[in-house]
Structures are given as C-alpha cells and as structure tokens.
Nucleic acid binder design. Structure first.
Lengths: 224, 224, 224, 224
DNA sequence: TATGAATGAGCATTCATTCAT
DNA sequence: CATGAATGAATGCTCATTCAT
C-alpha cells in the first residue's frame, strides 16, 4: 500500500509556523490524493511532511479540518489559475478557450491537487461534498453566464435560454472528463484538449444559437 | 449517521444461496451508496441484508470482494440498460439519442447504483478504480465507434480521426455531469437531457465532420 | 505501575454474554480501584478480565459507561448489604448498630468496591460525582430519619430538629472515615468499629468519659 | 470544559523566582481543584499562571512534583490555620471547639485548597495518597491527644484508652464530611457547624435528646 | 446452513516534556 | 530569564474478519 512517496529527508528544525503549515498541507494533498481521505493515515502525512503528528494537530486541527483546508487551498488555486488566464474583454469564445487552456495547464502542473478535488472530495460525504459541489456550481454558473452572453449577442435563441445551466454543466463535465482521460494519455497538449472541446461544444452551441436544432425527427433516418 | 435505511424485518431462514447473494448485494449497494466504501460497515450491511456477517463472508468474500461485485453487477446493469435501448440498425445519431435516454432512465430508476458507480468507486484506489476506469473506457470506445462511424459515412474528416476517443471521453463526461446535475434538478425529463446533449455535441460534431472548425484565430475578435 | 494484578489464566471461550459482562465489571472494579479512573487503561482492564478490548466496548460501552456501571453496581451492592442487615422493627439505635456492622462487613468483604465508591468516584468530575453524591445524600437522609425518629420518641429536642441532616452527614462521614482508618488497622473487628461509633455519636464522648457506655444489650429494646 | 478561569492578563516579565513560583502554584491549585489531577493540563496551568510551560518545569519540576507541592503548601496552610486558632492552655473541649471553627473558616476562605486536599489528592494513587494520608494521620493523632488528655483529666475510662485513635479518626471524618455538606449548604455559619459537631461527639446524641447541650459557655473552663 | 461470540490490528488524538533560540 | 516549536509515547476506540457451536 505505501509504495514510494517523496519525503523530506531530514527532520528540519525550528521553522516558523507558516512554513510548517505549508509543508503539512503539501504533504496532506499528496497523501490524500494517493489514498483518499479514509485510507490516508495521519501517520503517513506526518511522515511525508517531515513533522511529528502533534504539530499537525496543533497547527491544522483534526484530520477532517486538515482535509477541508487541503480542499479549500487547492480549489482556490484552481480558480485563481483559471481566472488569471481569462481576459474579460475578449469575446466569449476566446474567454472559454483561454479558460480551458488554463484549466488543463493547472491539471498538468498540479495533478495531485486535481485528483484530490475531483476524485476524493466528492466521495467523502457531509460538508466536503457540499463544499466541492458548491464550488463546482459556481464554475458552472460562470460558464453558463459565458454561454448566455454569447447567445444574447446573437439574439438569444430560445434553446439557449432555457438550457443554459444544463449546457454549462455538460460542458464542465466534458472538460473534467477530458482532464481525467488526459491523465492516461498525456501525449497531447493542453491546447489540443481545449481545441477539441471548443470544436465539440462551441460549434454545436453556435448552431443552436443560429437556429439549427437537432431533433430525433430531423435525423437522416427519419427526414429523407 | 444511520438515519433510516430499509431493513429486512425478520431473519428469514434456509433460503437458496442465489437469493441470499442477491439480498446481500442489494443491501451492500444501498449502504455503499449512502456512506461510501470506507464508511460503510459490514455490520450495517449485514443488518440491512437481514443476514449474519459470517454469511456475507461465506458467500461473497471480503469487503473488497463485496464492493467489487457490487460495482460489477451495477455496471453490467447499466451497460445492459443502455445497450438494450439501442437499435444497431439506426443511424449513429439516433443510436446515440436512444442510448442517452436509456442512460438517464437508468440513473433515474437506480439512483443508488449510479451513485456507487460514479461517486464512490473512483475514490477507492487500487483495483476498483482500474475496474471502473476500464468499464468507462469501454463506454467511451463504444461512443467513439459511433462517432467515427458517423464520420466515415460523411468522408471522415481528419479532425475526427485523430480526436475520436477524446471527443467520446468528453461526451461521456458531459453525459455524466448532466446526470449529476439532474439529481438536483429532477424537474426536466430524460428526453430533455438527451436533447440538450445531442444539440450540444452532435451539432458541433457535425460541423467538424463537414469541415467547419473553430480555431482561436477564427474567433470574431481576430477575424474582423 | 502495573505491579501484580490477578488475571484470568486462560482465555476462556464462548461464554454467554451475561457471564462476560460480570467478568468485565469485576475486572474493571479491580483496576479502577487500584489506579483510579484516569490512570486505569482499557488495555489493562481487558487483560485482567481475560477478554479482548472490543468485547468491553460491545458489551459495556465506553470507558465512561463502564465506570458508571461499576459505580452503580457497587453502590447497589453496598446499599443492599446495609439494608439487608437492618431490621426495621427494632429501635433506632439498634437499627443504626446493625446498619453500621453491615457496612463494615461490606467494606471488609469488598475492599475494592468500597475504594472505587469512596476514593475514586468523587474525584472524577461530572455525572459521576453527582451520582455518588446523590447516593450519599440518600444515605444521609436515611440516617437523618433514624436520628429524628429517635429524637421524636423522646420528645424531640430542638437541637435535633434543626440539625438533623447536618448531624447525619457528620455521622456518615465519621463512619466512612473510620472505614478508611480500618483499612490500615484491620486488627479490630467490625463490631468494635460499630461500637466506637455508637458510643461516640450516640452516647457522647463525655458520657464515655464518665463511665456511661452504650452496648447492644443496654439498648431500650433489651433492658426493659 | 474550560469555562471561565481567571487568568493573568499580560505576560509579565523578569519577576524574581519566588514570585513566579507563587504565581504558578496559585494557578496550579486553581486548575487542579477544578479538574482534578489527571484532567488538569500543564497547558492550562501555564496559561492561567501567565507563564510559559518551560518555566514551570524549570521552577517546579514535573506535573507530579507540581501537584505534590500544591498539596504540601495547602496542607501546611490548613494546619497553620487550625493551629493558630487553638490556645493550648484552654481545656480540651475548648481547644477542639476553636480548632473546628478555624478549620471551617479555612474551608470557607480557601475552597479550592480544601477541594484539592480532600477530593483530589486521595484519588491519585501512589505517593500522594501516602502524603495526604500521613497528614491526615497527624491531624488524627492531634485530636486523639486531645481526646485522651480529656479522658485522663477525668480518670481515663478504659473505652477511651483503647479506642482513642479510632474515635479521633471518626471525629476528623465527621468534620470533613460536614465541611463537604457545607459546600452545598452555605447558609449556616462556621460556628453552627462547630457546635453541631461538639454536641454530637463531645456530648453525645443521647444527651442532646435528653436536653443536655454543650455550649462554649457550659465548658468547664467557663462555668466553674 | 447460520450465527453469536470473539479478536488482531490499526488509527485519530492528546499530553507531559524538552530543545533551540 | 523566557518561550515558541517540537515530539515520544500512550490511550480510547473501531472494524474487518474468524471460530465454535
């Protein structure tokens, strides 16, 4: 179970509290992302952090507290990364494009952060799931706003209006799923991933906005 | 923690093995979906199943085994449900359409199965993640085949060829994400969900196939 | 710290629950009386009981629960012992006399029970102290009733009326203190101890000095 | 758990050692009396004392040492208080009377000291119990001497000779018990308590009932 | 077949105690 | 003199798992 995890070589001494807290959080993210909340042991975290267990409790509180702080820190990082990649004065599609690229760069740079956020946090019931879910909801709303703003620019097709949030949820899910897929197919670049998504959902979305609609009865099997 | 879970009223006796196994698996899915793998206790499962713990071990093996069998059974059910909804002689888009509707009907009918598969199984490291991932991969490949077959009907654009699996992964993710979203917005029907997805991804995909491509430089900000 | 404590020699097997519970409670009283609530470890209790720790938790609950049940059981035993020694149709002084003898016999027979009740239970704050205090209060009231009934038989002197409970508290304390003293001076018999107390509080030290002595046979029940 | 405990507002600096030691002991008595030996934490003591933990260790040694010194200091205070209230040239009963009043005044003035001594010290096994027991023994011997001296003045009845120490133990226990009772019935004065005891043990309950009452003014020292 | 009885092993958490500054 | 930083060592408790009947 505890294969090979990076650990601080020597028990460093007398560091200021802030530094220690960062060390501990780093270690915690690493371990939580590997084993999940329940299987992760405070022993291993303290080990990886190069710090004794009591310090963890003194500085960061209980295991639950620790996990919560991991989640929050990584979620903030992710949001910041994405936001910092977006220029709000660009048109919606460019915003989405840059947002997606930033997102994938983050996933690449901080695999563990992404794993904790995406894979582990939801499985742990209670407040964590809520917290994560609410962050995800915020992301979805953000995308929905983008989608709707794009639609209104072009005359806001009915389809878009009604389904904005649903479409956004689908888009976010697609992006996440592609991120997961990427973890096992790292040969493509973040730009390629973002392109795929843009082509898949943006072109489709564009059609919608311009009045082209897919319905079961419009399928070639039926309408010719 | 243990709010209100259905439990068998009386300790029944001398049932054939197959029946017992089903009872146990049902209970296990119920409990796992509520609490997640680690927080679920064999005690509660045996309680809900109306069976003593040793029986579980005799019939289904360890907790890990039990979970694996839950996963497999529910995944099979899901796949069956989806496949049985598809008529292979229809055109690709209609197949996708029917597949999506079947998928959402399954999610609605077997919430717990879906929860176990989607939320819990990935968080548990090791063999489970692999198993789930491989099943998901199969689903993705299936969709990819659909996508590619649609592409080749129309002359297989390059974009599609290279990105088929990625697009499929994105589509599957979008469908899953929308399923999650649906759990909290049950006012729309499965048909609506499927429509959204078809409009979002199929129209977009169609554009691709027909040579319309989104690139950063084709965005209005750049080409005017 | 863990000098030499009697322990069950062999890990006995498959005993009915009631028996195990008794074993565990016996062991717990033994260990609590030796080390006090806090220093006693569940490990040692389980060891002495010849039972694994999980059984203790399954059968008797948490350490606090366990201690509470020890207290209650021993307190009940003590009360029963004292009450069974009293014949309510005797005059008050004879009742007191027999009650005291029973009390001291109990202390002699169940040293550990007495230690737990007297020495340990009060030091642990919270509900235990309250429980013990309330039992002690009941004992005091009982004695107070005796005292007052004796007083009213003789015309109820004012002093007695006003101070009944205080006197009873003092008497109970005297009895307890003498019990403690006895633990280090076991050469005298329970009868002697009871005599001392009767002479001290019933007759009065002054009387003693002047040659008046209370003996069971000088009680009104006998000497008329 | 840590409701509201007085604490030094500002971390004072550079005080002479003796002062620091007093601060710490005061805090320790306060905390030990509230929570008992085991539940009291060095952290809280240092907190209440307004001193860092290492200082405690430097000045007073281990937790055990600290507790021992609390016990000794408070016991000394108690003994001094009682002794200073006694005038050795008075007759025994008056000495007892004054001693008791001093004792109750001490209990009233230093509740915490009394609590530590009476409730906590015995429950902690090992050397503390011995120390406390030995101090209590000294008190008992003192009283015994008083009793015996009273007896010998009047011709030393046999009963007294043999049972002197036992009687004294009973008397001391009665006084302590009454002190405890007092903590919950503070409406009576220390004089009343002392009177009750004098009447109970010195004169005898029987005497009381028959109208003979001990009062300070009826003591031989005064009424002859 | 079916189960109440029993446990090994692990985990979160706490606390007295000590360095390094 | 004085302390924030740091930890070794316990301890209460839980849970998957297995016998003996």
């Amino acid at each position: 179970m505890s294969e090979h995890v990076q650990r601080s070589p020597e028990r460093a001494k007398r560091l200021p509290r802030a530094v220690r807290e960062r060390q501990i959080l780093d270690a915690a993210v690493q371990v939580f992302s590997r084993y999940g909340y329940h299987s992760a042991s405070m022993d291993e975290i303290s080990d990886v952090a190069g710090v004794s267990k009591p310090m963890i409790y003194t500085y960061l509180g209980s295991k639950e507290d620790l996990f919560a702080q991991c989640i929050r820190r990584e979620a903030s990082r992710l949001l910041e990364a994405v936001e910092s990649g977006i220029q709000p004065d660009l048109p919606p599609d460019m915003q989405l494009w840059h947002g997606l690229r930033s997102f994938y760069r983050f996933v690449a740079d901080y695999r563990e952060s992404w794993t904790v956020l995406h894979r582990q946090a939801l499985a742990v019931g209670g407040s964590f799931a809520e917290e994560i879910t609410s962050m995800r909801s915020r992301a979805i709303e953000l995308v929905a706003a983008l989608v709707v703003s794009a639609g209104s620019q072009k005359g806001l097709a009915d389809q878009v209006e009604k389904s904005g949030e649903g479409l956004a949820a689908a888009l976010v899910g697609a992006a996440e799923s592609l991120a997961d897929w990427w973890l096992d197919h790292s040969e493509v670049t973040d730009g390629v991933l973002a392109s795929w998504l843009m082509n898949l959902v943006w072109l489709g979305f564009n059609d919608l906005v311009e009045g082209r609609v897919w319905t079961p009865s419009s399928s070639p099997a039926h309408n010719e």
